[in-house]
């Protein structure tokens, strides 16, 4: 029996988040029932950002410290989770956009940013594939992540100037039509926490798999 870790709370919080999202929180005034996608779209977008940030920090730490395969697995696994989360955020956002704005794709700043992010993920994975047999794979792919992270703040500066926004900013901008009342806010918060725990949970499973793979490879070397 493995010791219980904080991220195991996901087993409690995720069902709770689903119940809150579909049964407890009221539908938003104008958007109607479709607004419930917010409890999933926003949290996946959030964990993709979180996963990329963790990957970037782990890449820097990897380059500064020992080049140990398990530490390499850390930023790589986080990048993989981030890529899938970004893909899910794109798909769920696109479905919602069809319902709200009439078309699947509108090149609004956030849609544009996520395309740039997905391109970055594709580039990272292509680089990893090209480095498959290279003993310096960890260092070179970590260096690429750091270069890409350096370009990030410039995206944040440029994108809104080039593409006009359609996105509501419900938590910051009080003038937009969507207002989150107390119950909706609580449901969103619960969902965000549940998804963060889900990220940690998946991440810990992937790290365990990596540890096993690395140990097996090392055993094979010993023989």
């Amino acid at each position: 029996m493995r010791a219980l870790r904080p991220h195991h709370l996901v087993h409690l919080l995720m069902p709770l988040a689903i119940v809150l999202a579909f049964a407890w929180a009221p539908a938003a005034d104008i958007l109607g029932e479709t607004s419930r996608i917010i409890y999933f779209h926003v949290p996946v977008a959030w964990i993709s950002v979180l996963a990329f940030a963790v990957a970037g920090v782990c890449a820097v730490l990897y380059l500064r410290g020992a080049h140990d395969p398990l530490r390499e697995a850390r930023f790589h696994n986080s990048m993989l989770i981030g890529s899938y989360a970004a893909l899910l955020a794109t798909v769920s956002g696109s479905m919602w956009a069809r319902l709200m704005w009439g078309s699947y794709w509108n090149w609004d700043p956030r849609e544009t940013s996520i395309v740039a992010l997905l391109l970055g993920c594709v580039a990272y994975l292509a680089l990893r594939a090209a480095l498959e047999t290279n003993p310096s794979r960890g260092r070179i792919s970590a260096a690429y992540l750091v270069v890409a992270m350096t370009a990030m703040p410039f995206f944040v500066f440029v994108v809104p100037r080039i593409y006009p926004s359609l996105h509501p900013d419900p938590l910051i901008n009080p003038d937009l039509k969507i207002r989150l009342d107390g119950e909706m806010r609580a449901a969103l918060l619960c969902s965000a926490v549940a998804f963060t725990l889900l990220y940690l949970y998946i991440f810990s499973i992937m790290q365990r798999i990596s540890r096993i793979t690395i140990t097996l490879e090392e055993r094979a070397h010993e023989e």
Partner: peptide, 28 residues
Amino acid sequence: LAAIVARAGGKAALFTVISFPVLLPVLW
């Protein structure tokens, strides 16, 4: 990025793939 590509086998296509996301703000 050219240095990275050279260490990864030197494929010109890979250079484009890894440069485009980084250079997007410049192009915009």
